[in-house]
Amino acid sequence: MNASLLAGLVGAALVGLGLYGLIAHPHPLRKLLAFNLVGSGVFLVFGVVARRGAAAGYAFDPVPQAMVITGIVVAFAASALAVALILRLAVASGGVSLDPQGPAGRDAGEME
């Protein structure tokens, strides 16, 4: 088993772990963390594509690598926006429940 296949399998495992956390954790900050795990797993799989595309004297294909860097930046921006929305939800409804029937029902449902 070579390094890039191994990294690809790690990426697949990370996507699975993150997907489970995204569904199973009720707290939105934990969901956000889980979603970032899914994201980094996808980036890793794309990184394997970059490694396999070695050509023209490079040990990797620079185009997917550059796209992963752009992806990491955009993922961070989206996470920061999500954090701001979660904190606003907490201020507005007194809780961070995403459950429309939950204790802070009505407000949470509207902000979702």
């Binding site: 296949l5 690809g8 399998l9 990426g11 697949a12 495992a13 996507v15 699975g16 772990l17 997907l19 489970y20 569904i23 797993g41 799989v45 394997v48 594509v49 396999r52 595309g53 070695a54 050509a55 023209a56 004297g57 490079y58 990797f60 294909d61 620079p62 185009v63 997917p64």
Partner: peptide, 27 residues
């Protein structure tokens, strides 16, 4: 989650060879 991870692992293990590359354009 296990299904998704398994499917992804299968895809990773069966990526085409030779792999497509844009490295010449980047060079």
């Amino acid at each position: 989650s296990a299904l998704v991870a398994g499917a992804l692992a299968f895809v990773v293990a069966s990526l085409p060879t030779p792999a497509p590359s844009l490295a010449p354009q980047a060079a």
